[in-house]
Amino acid sequence: MDLKRMGNQTVVFANPPVILSSYSVVGPKEGQGPLGKTFSKVWKDQLNGEKSWEFAESKMLREALEGAIAQVNVPSGHIDFMLAGDLLNQMISSNFAARQLALPFIGIYGACSTMALGMALGSMLIDGGFARYVLVGVSSHHDTAERQFRAPTEHGTQRAMSAQWTVTGAGSVLLGQTGVGPRITSATLGRVVDYAESNVNNMGSAMAPAVADTILNHLHDLHRHPADYDLIASGDLGAVGLALAGEVLKQSGRDMGTGFTDCGVMIFDANQDVHAGASGCGCSAVVFAGNIMQRIKAGELKRVLLVGSGALHSSTSALQGESIPGIGHAVVIEA
């Protein structure tokens, strides 16, 4: 049997799936950021007429998924799978969005790495011959995350300088077996790596070794160098994690050069008071679906490595003294 595996952790697609469309919906703060104009839709407020943050997040995800479908001429009955995930307990945003879309649904959890994970799995389903079209979408919402992981939203506290701001946003892509658009050519699924960071206000530091591990294995598996990519974007380590991942890779013999950045650093300006940058499933999803897809389509980027990064803890495990395990999943997108 001809395995489509290369090296330690990488799969290479024989018939690379096509990203037929992408759609992003964000909250007002993200809309005011430097990438504001690249998003498909910007909400005027965090609730958008819904009665709770959770309902709003689920609606946002649904809008992103439906937006991706609406852009191409694919009847929704032809979509074989929907892969979606979010940060909330039991993934309610995804489950309730899936209830409306009525597609065969696989819920996935990779914390903030979920978008890259979904794109990798969706591509495997298509290249494996199990699907013609796969819809992938993820969401996060600042206020649902605050109340689940931290404190009630109106509680007056100061955030740590290393803390990251959860993005209110939902992004989605529709993958197809054939068609016109950028292609997902390979994927490197990450290992869970834990370097004993236990500070929940420093998740970039918790995830950086996992991202470094995935990038190291990816480059090794495909015999490539960082310079082979026009852009390597982690999502979302924030400023602290990005610097740490770069340093760890350098000490491990891989100098990442100038093409290494992070979706959590790109989405907000320094004056938006987010401290170390952004986080949340939605962050890398909307930056990819918006900014990065536009730059690929414009011909500016030929080959991109998107490395989703997830902090796989819960508020319970953190209170019980466990450290934060990290994970990184990488997908290669080529024009």
Binding site: M1, D2, L3, K4, R5, M6, G7, N8, V12, A14, Y195, A196, P209, A212, D213, L216, N217, L219, H220, D221, V248, L249, Q251, S252, G253
Partner: peptide, 15 residues
């Protein structure tokens, strides 16, 4: 395409 290389890339930074 099958290429089962042995494991080696691990970050060289200790905890």
């Amino acid at each position: 395409m099958a290429n089962q290389s042995s494991r080696q890339p691990t970050i060289t930074v200790t905890p």
